[in-house]
């Protein structure tokens, strides 16, 4: 009951954010149910239906092999969402543990962590991911790890700075005073109280991760065909004569832009609600 009224209040205060959240939930549902709802198999070649423009039979048209584009877009959402969520979960977990520990322990460990963050901030994001993917080889898992690596420095920075103030809170000092172990202080008192801003960052990173994986696949360095992803669909659309079959380059991009837009507005609304200090920035 209270959850439902909370959602309703959020929707009234932040209609655009609620729209974003709804689109995200819709996309997740589609990705999970993909095998059940696709109109055709995304891998089956059908030479007689090559380059069919959008019609009632093929809502988003077909590609050179006659594969149904709508089905491929639906399957492609799985790649985007998997990489998005997996990289954010990995990056956030590792980042928060390092960031909060670094703030709490201080000393040499903290110094090394700070230098590391400074260095990482100097790299253009896509370059880090690119270098890692080249080193590890292009695959779904490696792309996910590379994106998580490119993001966890920001988590460290954010969680470290909030941990520095949480560290001085009376309840942490009280825990220290009664002789609680470091590990217990970190997991029970420090980390839970540093999570709100990190959570907001994570929502915003979801959109960024989805753009990065699409960009990499577009460059041929991400998810490899025939596995459909929005990025490699756009890549093959750009390689053939684009003006011959414009629907091939339009629809996967619309799906991509809609999802990143939704994550962006949802993240912004969440930030306004959870973190009033950053409102309006």
């Amino acid at each position: 009951m209270s959850i439902l009224s909370g959602i309703l209040r959020f929707a009234r205060r932040k209609p655009l954010g609620a729209f974003g959240g709804a689109v995200v939930i819709f996309m997740i549902t589609i990705a999970v149910l993909a095998p059940v709802i696709v109109p055709a198999d995304p891998y089956t070649h059908n030479p007689s239906a090559s380059y069919e423009p959008p019609s009632w039979k093929y809502l988003a048209g077909t590609d050179v092999f006659g594969r149904d584009q709508l089905s491929r877009i639906i399957y492609g959402s799985r790649v985007s969402l998997f990489v998005g969520f997996a990289s954010v979960i990995i990056g956030t977990t590792v980042g928060v543990v390092i960031g909060v520990t670094s703030a709490y322990v201080g000393g040499k460990f903290d110094l090394v962590v700070q230098r590391f963050i400074d260095t990482m901030m100097g790299f253009p994001g896509l370059v880090v991911v690119l270098v890692m993917v080249v080193a590890l080889g292009p695959s779904l898992l490696n792309v996910t790890l590379a994106i998580a690596f490119n993001y966890f420095d920001k988590v460290i920075r954010l969680s470290r700075s909030s941990a520095l103030s949480v560290k001085e809170e009376p309840y942490v000092l009280a825990a220290v005073a009664i002789g609680a172990r470091t590990w217990r202080i970190l997991t029970r008192y420090m980390i839970p109280n540093c999570l709100a801003p990190v959570f907001v960052l994570a929502t915003q990173q979801l959109g960024a991760a989805i753009v990065i994986v699409a960009s990499l696949s577009f460059l041929g360095l991400g998810v490899q065909p025939p596995t459909p992803s929005w990025g490699n669909m756009l890549q093959s659309a750009a390689k053939t004569n684009m003006e011959l079959a414009p629907w091939l380059s339009i629809f996967p991009g619309v799906a991509l832009a809609l999802l990143t837009f939704s994550f962006a507005v949802f993240g912004d609304a969440l930030r306004d609600v959870l973190d009033p200090r950053m409102r309006g920035t």
Binding site: M242, G253, A257, A264
Partner: peptide, 22 residues
């Protein structure tokens, strides 16, 4: 600004090229 932030660069580029050609 929101659209500028959330439309992926490379797709925007493709759409621009497509628009110019078509």
């Amino acid at each position: 600004t929101i659209t500028g932030n959330s439309i992926p660069n490379f797709w925007l580029a493709l759409m621009l090229l497509l628009f110019m050609v078509l």
